[in-house]
Amino acid sequence: MPLLELHGLSAAYGAVEALKGLSLHVGEGEIVALLGSNGAGKSTTLRTISGLMKPKSGRVLFDGKDIGGLHPESVVRLGVAHVPEGRRVFPGLTVKENIMLGASNRPGVSRRELEAGVEEMFELFPDIRRFSGALGWTLSGGQQQMVAVARGLMSKPRLLLLDEPSLGLAPLIVQQVFRIIARIRERGTTVLLVEQNARTALSVADRGYVLETGRLIIEGKPDALWNNEEVRAAYLGGRVTAGV
């Protein structure tokens, strides 16, 4: 049984239908890339999984249980962490406080466990350790991204939803973020990765889905998606010379 299954999922912002009967699945231990151009419905998919939006129809099965329409606070307690688009680091809290609050889904977690968790995150993201006491708004985009991911991991999720982690980052930082994503999976966390940067996403993913205007266009292995000239030209923004 897959860890996450979407069945005919539809969602709308008022009259704007952003998802139109999307079905996909993510197996335990996989990294799955969700690709597509701007406005395709990628963020809406993640928002509907994490409870920020209610599905109009269709089902969201997590570990076999229908979580569609639950509050975000309940969804994260079940083990789904959503690192949203734009990172959303709390600007007036320090890096350490931001990361600590990631454990807010775990009831009765002790101060010592929190400290240990933060320490573990600083080992995973050594670059942000020296900013421990810096306020969120003072960080660079790459640092904020690492804080946002570390904060997401503090909930000890089984499934991590990452929305455009490479957005606005320098190429070198992007490489670093994707190496971390690979390590997150090695630690046993399943990842659903939303990206416009298809090439980099496919380089770490086991499988990929391509969306357009709320519908699934194609799914497949990274090579198959990337080597399909039509798909690449139309949805992945790839040049013919680029390889995986």
Binding site: H71, P72, E73, R88, F90, L93, E97, L101, S104
Partner: peptide, 24 residues
């Protein structure tokens, strides 16, 4: 206090706070 930090987080970004499991 952690509760104080949660209240600050809520005032800074409610949607993000709820994603972390803070009872907004």
């Amino acid at each position: 206090t952690l509760l104080g930090k949660k209240m600050q987080a809520t005032s800074q970004d409610k949607e993000m706070a709820s994603l972390l499991g803070i009872p907004v």
